[in-house]
């Protein structure tokens, strides 16, 4: 089963919202994530710092100590959802398992749950989104992050897709 905003949903959602043309969107999508750890090319182990993605279209990026991660929704999902008008943030210290709902966004009459990619404890929520929910559309993989989590099992991140794998996943979903 693919995720909450997966597949053709996104394609049709984009048609309806038409925030940018399809060629534009494909160009956007092929751009590399803005954040690249400086030490990335040194050793294989730093690959764990890469931004990872779920089939539900969330991303997680680990801190340099590898203990906490920042969670948000992908650029692809943000475009499909359309203008976000309200964000429900998780409460601090909330203990969650991978796949649990840690918040929700509302856009164009849709209330959409956001699921955590990993298990752990919520240590910070991006309260800026309470007053400016549109930040999720402007910068879904940057300033529009949703929450930070203290991970209980760092190995869970390894099961997620890297940027390249996620791009292929979304292309396949669009194609079917």
């Amino acid at each position: 089963m693919s995720g909450a905003f997966a597949g053709r949903a996104l394609k049709h959602g984009m048609d309806a919202v038409s925030r940018c043309s399809r060629p534009q969107f494909q160009r956007l999508r092929t751009q590399k994530p803005a954040f690249k750890p400086a030490v990335r090319s040194f050793t294989a182990s730093t690959r764990a710092w890469e931004k990872k993605y779920t089939e539900d279209h969330e991303w997680i990026e680990l801190s340099s100590d590898g203990k906490t991660g920042t969670i948000g929704i992908s650029t692809y999902a943000a475009k499909a959802l359309g203008d976000v008008v309200f964000v429900e943030l998780p409460t601090l210290d909330l203990e969650v398992s991978a796949g649990d709902s840690i918040g929700a966004v509302e856009s164009v009459k849709s209330a959409s749950d956001i699921m955590t990619p990993v298990s752990g404890k919520i240590v910070e929520a991006n309260s800026v989104l309470e007053d400016t929910p549109g930040k999720i559309n402007k910068s879904p993989e940057g300033d529009g992050w949703l929450a930070k989590i203290e991970m209980s099992d760092a190995k869970e991140v390894e099961k997620l897709m890297d940027a390249d794998g996620y791009r292929k996943f979304t292309e396949e979903a669009d194609g079917h």
Partner: peptide, 10 residues
Amino acid sequence: YPSADFTRDK
């Protein structure tokens, strides 16, 4: 229905 098939209009 499955969310992979979601559209607002169908």
